[in-house]
Design a protein around this nucleic acid. Structure first.
Lengths: 136, 136
DNA sequence: ATTGTTGTAATCGAAACGGTTACAATAATT
DNA sequence: AATTATTGTAACCGTTTCGATTACAACAAT
């Protein structure tokens, strides 16, 4: 299994907001037509980004605007905003047998390695800002 | 979404095989009782590990044995064997709009960054061998 | 008051997963 | 040769998660 496309949709959404800021009104319909996903999905995405302090969304009149500078938003901020992995990237089987030496130890020996792998991935996301992804 | 527990089950399975080698016969039932997952799941896992050249499984008489030394098997080998992410760790939305500058460019600007993040994670998995996870 | 948009609940079908049953094929043992 | 234990694999199930979609009240500008 993989990481939800909510993440790439959110990145695309923010890129569109920064790119068309001042040119077009950034409604969910407009963003939906750029991403190719349903407008309701875009609205949910915008709510996540808003909760993370990355955008403001105007109810009623419509339109999303950026809160921060593009150079101050990392891919990790977006990844966190849409909660792709709910804490742990790796699922772990539920009930290793505590009466078996291996079952008893598996979490102790494996968890730190999985954690490190996840952090390596997330650190890469932290090293990229939206400013580096600007289209034009 | 996260990475399937197939991966941790496979690691647990191999650890059990190395740990109990020569002591117990490593049947799917025995491994299932250590991992807490269904014996059929264990058999499927063993088939994946066998296809990757990590174990031999004896039909009929039963029992799995390691092919390589524990120091020669990395977490990445296991991760690859069970095919956790089918190539790409990150799902990407299907139909970005080619008539929009952002939709037209999103893959070009984002794909390399996602690839790098994935590789960082996988490189961590490559750096850990089963010998470092041995229980006793 | 009208209009366009957001915010959100509800429901849907598809896909993936692990669990489970069932059973033929296999190989050692008796 | 028959028995026994196990593998290999197909089939099906229920659960979960996903994105898509419909619907509509709340909202704010005109």
């Amino acid at each position: 299994m993989k990481i939800t496309s909510r993440f790439t949709v959110a990145v695309h959404t923010l890129l569109a907001i920064y790119t068309f800021q001042g040119e077009h009104k950034l409604t969910s319909d407009f963003i939906a037509s750029s991403t190719g996903v349903n407008p309701v999905i875009v609205r949910r995405t915008l709510q996540s980004l808003k909760a993370a302090g990355l955008v403001d969304v105007k109810a009623g009149t419509g339109g999303a605007v950026p809160v921060k500078k593009a150079s101050e938003v990392t891919l990790y901020d977006i990844y966190s905003a849409v909660d792709c992995v709910d804490g742990n990237l790796f699922n772990f089987h539920d009930s290793p047998n505590p009466d078996c030496p291996v079952g008893r130890s598996i979490h102790r020996v494996l968890d730190p390695r999985l954690q490190k792998a996840q952090e390596a991935m997330e650190n890469e996301l932290k090293s990229v800002t939206l400013a580096e992804l600007r289209i034009e």
